[in-house]
Simulated assay, not measured.
Amino acid sequence: MSSLSKSLRRWGFVHKWSSLICTVFMLMLCVTGLPLIFHHEIDHLLHDEVQVAPVEKGTPFAPLDAVVAAALAHEPGHVPHYLIWDFDEPQNMLVSIGKTMDDNPASLRLARVDAYRAAYLETPDISGRFTNIMLRLHTDMFGGLPGKLFLGLMGFLFCVAIISGIVVYAPSMRKLSFGAYRRERPRVVRWLDLHNLTGILLMVWMLVVGFTGVINTWADLVIKVWQFNELSVIIAPYKDRPLPAQPTSIDAALRVAHEAAPDMRPGFIAFPGSAFSSRAHYLIFMRGNTPLTSRLGRPVLIDATTGAFAGSPEPPWYVKTLLISQPLHFGDYGGLPLRIIWAILDIITIVVLITGLYLWLRRRSPAASAARASAAVPS
């Protein structure tokens, strides 16, 4: 046996077992990821929302302090963790609230407030929503960090399967015209051609989505490393300070953040004591102004007691990689047309996975084995 044949057998072994281990989980991720591409549209269709009365063009936004106060007035006994701008619906402000600042982030609720009138709208229970169930299955299978890391491993094996599949099938594809589909051959050969063709056509996209998915499963760890390294240097002098009894105005803090990053806009504000900030600071995450750069940006730390600028560290490369990977994974940086393309490619990926599973299930059939043996010979 030649060294090339031995090498191809080894790559074939890698492709077979990496594919077998991850295929069922990747099918689950593709199926659950499909509705998540259109989660806004699905939520609007399935769930009634409190309608917001339109405002005249040029109406100024309400003070942020009033927005937060409106949310807390309807949710007594709660404290704010985050104030979030809804870029899909600018008239909405979202206030993430919990009973204490030590609450598990997964248990926080989102209060929706009219951004122009500072009028409370609703705090919907999303735990039983179809899109939320799909999101939990897609991100961690309801398993928290261990579930995320497990799915990250499956995503890594998926990338290995794609790369090894290219290596294994490249020699046989040299004997066939690109895109060949031998409809006169046995079914197993036709499925093999379909598997190879769809896999080759989508290999770059599948690698991008697979790799960015792996990165997203590391999000919790990436943020912790960032906080422990870069942010800890800034907040070290404040580590023993208690939560401020009367924090400074949110609007005043935002004005200071705009002075530090004048060409950027706020994405969210983390309150003192929340998972993204220290016990002494507001962390205001400022973003770019284009669909892609809106996912990037930098944090601005504001002393929550004095309202003074405390620092604005440039996010390290691994945080930027995480921030870029999120819109690339879901295709939500180019509007509805790009999301439709992402959905079509997701469906084709499901075809790749199903045909690969079918080929493996047929592997012990004598007829299928004979057909596969001749599959590399063009008719």
Rank of each mutant, 00 (worst) to 15 (best):
M1E: 07
W11H: 03
F13Y: 10
V31P: 00
L34Y: 00
L34D: 02
F38N: 01
D43N: 12
V55R: 14
K57F: 15
G58T: 11
A62L: 08
D65L: 10
A66E: 15
A69T: 10
A73H: 04
N92A: 08
V95W: 05
N104V: 00
A106W: 11
A115C: 02
Y120L: 02
I126R: 09
I126Y: 04
G147T: 08
K148L: 06
I163M: 11
L176Q: 15
S177F: 14
S177M: 13
S177E: 15
R187D: 08
G199I: 05
L201E: 02
L202F: 09
W205H: 03
V208H: 02
T217K: 00
T217G: 04
K224Y: 00
V233S: 04
Y238G: 04
D240G: 12
A245F: 11
Q246A: 15
T248R: 13
S249T: 09
A252W: 05
E259D: 14
A260P: 11
P262A: 12
L283W: 08
L283S: 11
R287E: 13
N289S: 13
T290V: 09
T290L: 12
S294R: 10
R295F: 14
V300I: 09
L322F: 07
L322I: 00
I324W: 00
S325Q: 02
G335N: 11
L336V: 14
I340C: 14
I344E: 08
I344S: 13
I347L: 15
I354L: 15
R364F: 12
A370T: 05
